[in-house]
Design a protein around this nucleic acid. Sequence first.
DNA 1: AATGGGACCTGCGCGC
DNA 2: TGCGCGCAGGTCCCAT
Length: 272
Amino acid sequence: MPELPEVETIKNDLCKVACGKKILRVQIYNAKVIRQMRPSDFKKLLEGKFIRSIFRRGKLLILELSSGKFLTVHFKMTGQLVLRKSRPKRPATSICRVSFALNAGLTLDFNDQRLFGELRIVGDWRELKFIQTLGPEPFDLTFSSFKDMLLKRKTEIKPLLLDQKFIAGIGNIYAAEILFRAKINPRARAQNIKAAKQRLLYQQMQKVLTSAIKHGGSSVDDYVRVSGKNGDYAQYHQVYNRQGQPCFSCKTLIKRLAQGGRGTYFCPRCQA
DNA sequence: AATGGGACCTGCGCGC
DNA sequence: TGCGCGCAGGTCCCAT
């Protein structure tokens, strides 16, 4: 499920092939993913426009159009953007929801198994409610302000890392991987984390996210890159989805617990 | 502010 | 074999 490193990878991949391209035609196969707008208006606002630039905020992908408006893409759990170097009549898969025909014979498919994904066209992406309440980007954060943020919160650290209002872009996989590497128990209260662990948490957050971007993200479940290929970071996962298997560091069995209705994976010994 | 639930969806794996 | 159930997770929304 695309988190910050996956969306960053999609952004980087897509920049290389789609920046400067013209959107010739938009095919809508399932209008559910188009939010707050009639499908006919969605088509009208895109067809004939150029993609001027592509960037990311949190888990949101943002395409700047030559009209001055923005196309925003939220992948939620199962969204994908996949490029095909052909112009076939039919969608490549049954889960293709919207297909963008670009010049140079390219087709960009928005696939989404579960229809949670969201495509919007907005005048100013900064005015989206989701953006206005979003916390800081992990890479923009200094240790000093991160520490202050932790000290203000009594809640458990793992659900806090998932809270996009607290910090933008971290999801269930990276929350688990970051906490393992920082040797912090997922149930620890943010406020009570000792100074040395605060520092380690900050460092590992940067390190894990940077490394995951370098490896093109984690392909678990549905995530693929724009090329259709998998990201390579899942091989470096230490705890995510490894309940019942031995910790790579101490051989203790990895545990799973539920926090806020979400699965949390951790080593009970390394993260005591 | 914290916490818990349901809603949105569909495929999968489980137990019977 | 086949059926029903719970689970998976990102975000919003409502209630306490």
